[in-house]
Simulated assay, not measured.
Amino acid sequence: MEAHTTVRAGTFSERLAAAAGLALALVLLRLPFRHTVRGARAARRAGRWPMEAAQAEALVNAVRHAARWWPGRAACLETSLGAVLAAALLGRRLDWCLGARFAPPPVEYHAWAQLPAHGPVGEYTAAGWHHHAALTI
């Protein structure tokens, strides 16, 4: 389970989109996975403009901050999909990636949001973690 941030990040509209995106992600993840994928693809198409790295980082942190208020599970799968949906609500585009992250010695399944030309957003890539996507939406 990933750590939740205690720092409020982003503008008011980004925080509002983050809360709405997380709520929508929690609903989508209760459905069969094919419907979740369709919803993520629709959100990807709805985002017309790419995001800048700093704005994407603030949005991912805003979703993680909003997840603090959810009493259930809000780990990488929920927060990454929430960030993609929040970006779509703002008219922006993020990719949703499902795969694994590697570092010596643990290997773990992981989900993350990523900028198409930049890589994973809000992830520990500098500490030796390598992300390998099995599915990118």
Rank of each mutant, 00 (worst) to 15 (best):
E78Q: 13
E78T: 11
L94N: 04
H130I: 15
R93F: 11
G99V: 09
E14D: 07
G122S: 08
L90Y: 03
A58W: 00
L24E: 04
G99Q: 08
W96C: 07
A88G: 08
A46D: 02
A3Q: 12
F33E: 00
A9R: 09
T36P: 00
A83N: 02
Y109S: 13
R45T: 06
L81G: 00
R30S: 05
E14M: 13
L22S: 01
H35S: 10
A66R: 11
P106G: 08
A86C: 09
W69C: 11
G128N: 09
P50Q: 05
A53V: 12
R34A: 11
A62E: 00
W96S: 04
A62K: 02
A9N: 06
P120Q: 02
A86Q: 01
A18P: 01
A103H: 14
E57C: 08
W96Q: 03
T136F: 11
A74I: 06
R15L: 04
R73Y: 05
L89K: 09
A46H: 13
A100M: 14
R41K: 09
L22Q: 00
A53I: 06
G99T: 07
E123F: 14
T36V: 10
A133R: 14
R41M: 05
R101Y: 04
S13A: 15
W70V: 06
A62S: 09
W129D: 05
L115P: 03
P105I: 05
L77G: 10
A20L: 15
L81I: 13
R68W: 01
G39K: 04
H131N: 09
